[in-house]
Design a protein around this nucleic acid. Sequence first.
DNA 1: GTCTATAACTAGATAGAC
DNA 2: GTCTATCTAGTTATAGAC
Lengths: 198, 198
Amino acid sequence: MAATIVATHERATAAERILRAAVVLFRERGYHGSSMRTLARALRMEAASLYYHFRSKQEILFAILDHTLDDLLAGVGRAVASADGPEARLRAAVRFHVLFHTDSQHEAFLSHSELRSLTQGNLRLVLTRRDEYERVFRGLLASGVRAGVFQVADVRLTAMAILTMCTGVATWFADGGRLSPEAIADRYVEMIMKSVKR
Amino acid sequence: MAATIVATHERATAAERILRAAVVLFRERGYHGSSMRTLARALRMEAASLYYHFRSKQEILFAILDHTLDDLLAGVGRAVASADGPEARLRAAVRFHVLFHTDSQHEAFLSHSELRSLTQGNLRLVLTRRDEYERVFRGLLASGVRAGVFQVADVRLTAMAILTMCTGVATWFADGGRLSPEAIADRYVEMIMKSVKR
DNA sequence: GTCTATAACTAGATAGAC
DNA sequence: GTCTATCTAGTTATAGAC
C-alpha cells in the first residue's frame, strides 16, 4: 500500500523521501503549521534543496494527496473485483477502506484534513477523484438494494455514513494498540453489514 | 446551542464577536493558515485591538474548543436525562450528537481538526473533557449490553465508530442541502440502532 | 544535487497615544 | 476600547557558487 509514494523501503528517490517526511510533518503540525525549513531539517538538508525536487510547498501537498487517491482508487477496484455479489463486494470494499486507513494512516488523514490548504485548481482535481471513489460505495449499496439483499433508507447518506465512520479510524488508530488493523476491519465490516442488510 | 459563545444574536460582547469570526476563519483556512490581521479585518478592526480581549491567538482557539466542550457535555447530559432505558437513551444521545454537528458545525469541526494546534497544556485540558464525553456513549452501550438489549463485540470500538460516524456530519453537512438536520439525525439513529440491537 | 546568502514579505505580539 | 507604529522573528522562494 502507498505504493506510489514508496516503491521499496531501500533506495527511495529523493522526491520520495521528501514526500514521506512531509506526510509525517504535515500530519503532526498541519500544512500551514509546517515550514520548508522544518521539513528540510527532518531530512538533514537545507530548505533551498527542496526546491530542486518540487516547485513549491503546495506541489508537495498536492503530490501527497494525488498519490493517496491513486492508491485508494486502485485498491478499491482490486477489492471489488476480487469478490462476487453485492454483499461480498461491500465487505471487501469496507475491509480495504479500513485497512487503508490504518496502513496509510497519515496520508489518509491528510487527504481529509488538508483539503482546505489546496489551491482552487488542485482542490478541484482531488475532489473529482474523491467523488469517483465515493461513487463506488454508492454503487455497491444501490446494487444490493436492487438485488433485495440490502435495505437502506438513503443510499447517498448511508454511503457517507460508512465512509466517514471508516475514515475516522485514521484519527484514532494507534500502531501496536489494543486492536490490530485486521480486528478493527473485521468488526467494522460486521457493524456495517448488520446495519445495511435487509 | 453554542450558548456559551453567543448568548443572543444581538448585543454580543466584543469577545463573543471575535470568537464567532474566528470560528468561521479557522474553519476555512485552519488555525495556522489564519492570521490575527485577517481575523481583525473580518471584524473591521486592527489586529492590535484583538489583544485587548485575548492574550494570544492560542487563547482564542482554546476558548472556542473549551466552549464547544461545555455545550457538548451539557447537551448530552440533558439528552440522556430526558430518556428512560438504554435504548431510548442511546437514541437521544446520538440524536443530540448529530444535531450538534449540524447546528454548531464549524465549532464541532474545529474541535477535531485543530486539536494539534493546541499547546500541550491546553490539549490536555481539552482531551480530558472529550474523554468524559466519550465515556457517556461507552456507558450507554455497556448498560444496553448488560440489560440484554444490545449486542456489540467491543464496546470501546463501537463507541468510537458511532462517534466518528456522527462527527463526520460536520465535514459534509451543507445548510439548506438535500437533507435537513432532523432527517439526517433520524436516519443516523436508525442505522446505529439497527447495528447495535440484539 | 546540495549549498550559502538573500530578497520580499508576513507572522504574533507590544508600546503608548487618544 | 481601539488606534498607529514598530519590534523581532519567521515565512516562501530564488540566485548563483560549488
